[in-house]
Design a protein around this nucleic acid. Sequence first.
DNA 1: GCCAACGTTGGC
DNA 2: GCCAACGTTGGC
Length: 152
Amino acid sequence: MNYWLMKSEPNEFSIDDLKNRPAGTDCWDGVRNYQARNFMRDEMRVKDRVLFYHSGKNPAVVGTARIAKAGYPDHTARERGSKHFDTRSTPENPIWFMVDVKFEKKFSRAVSLAELRKISALREMTLLRKGNRLSVMPVTREEFDTILSLAK
DNA sequence: GCCAACGTTGGC
DNA sequence: GCCAACGTTGGC
């Protein structure tokens, strides 16, 4: 079992959007960073747990999800006119990958980034490292559990 | 709105 | 292969 954190701008795609999708499931498209892609393509497994993070105005972990489908080609890379279109992507070499994510739970209260920074057990968390800009990143089981307990 | 940090691109 | 310039992310 792996644990992850996935960032999304709530204007673009929020945890409520995910919850309201059929079966609470949707594809996580549009990631255009190689390191993040590699996590999705190579390491995510069905049922892995995910912290859903809202970036932007009130950055916070807002709930949890599960990986519902392992890495597969991101079709938006091949859609001319899509914001995420990439001419280099072909059926033989899709370049960009995505996973499907299934809604699990929305926290009764969001756990803000500022709050996470105050927790000594989270000091080493990738999310909190200076300059970190990854939108998909691993978290440890301990970090995951710590954040769940903060949300209660 | 600003800006720090980072990844990518392209000239050399 | 280096590095300057640029675009983007994302916190504040």
